[in-house]
Amino acid sequence: MTVVPAGDGTAALICDTCGSDDSAIDTTRDGDLVWPVVIALGWTGSAFSTGPHRCPQCSRTSATPQQSAGESRPAHHSASYNIRTHDDVDVTAITPLADLDAALAERLRDDLMRAAARHRHVVVDLHAAHFIDSAALGLLVRARQEAKQHGATFDLVAPSRFVRTVLHTMRLDSVFRTFPDLRSAVNAMTPAARHR
């Protein structure tokens, strides 16, 4: 738990990297949802009161000095993603292999934007990503806009409950078409399915 309730409708947001805190969090509006306040204060991380959260200083640096000295980072930061193209229907499927945080979004950015500009259909398979932060969500929105500018589709596959909640909260659930699995998404792109 990285948001500690103060009992009067406020809470302290604690940085998971350096331990600094900000006690200006108003939790009365949306219960456990703290994303609007987190973003306004320059923090990154979870939309909910359960972490991870990073203060503005730690959000600007990708690694602490201890990590630079060779200490291991959390597993979700070292994970990557897969890209697979289904040439028969010109679908590119990008699968993040971990939670979509700012670090993974940064590594994914170029390939995702390139796919959105070059392929008729792009799907992001989120079955392994249970969490998404504001940086990653922003990347998905930009990639969808890029795809739309090129007359392409940009869909999501198997978003977790958390991701669906974030999409709903940010009023993006009607923007992204979602599919339960990759096969359903690819099948929906076939010429026969599109003409039904």
Rank of each mutant, 00 (worst) to 15 (best):
M1G: 14
A6Q: 15
G7Q: 11
T10C: 02
A11Y: 07
D16G: 13
D22K: 00
P36E: 06
P36D: 13
I39Y: 06
G42L: 11
S46M: 01
S46K: 03
S49D: 07
S49E: 08
T50C: 08
R60Y: 00
T61A: 11
S62E: 06
S62P: 00
T64Y: 09
Q66S: 13
Q67C: 10
E71P: 03
Y81C: 10
T85I: 13
T85N: 08
H86G: 01
V89R: 06
A93G: 13
I94T: 07
I94K: 09
P96I: 04
L97K: 11
L100D: 06
L104K: 14
M113R: 10
A115T: 04
R120G: 03
H121L: 03
L126W: 06
A128Y: 01
A129V: 03
H130L: 10
F131H: 11
A135M: 11
A135T: 15
A136M: 11
L139A: 09
V141P: 00
V141I: 14
A143W: 06
D155N: 14
P159A: 08
V163G: 11
R164F: 09
M170E: 10
R171F: 02
R171V: 00
L172H: 04
D173I: 00
V175R: 08
V175K: 01
F179G: 04
P180C: 05
P180H: 11
S184F: 01
M189I: 00
T190F: 00
T190R: 15
T190Y: 05
R196I: 03
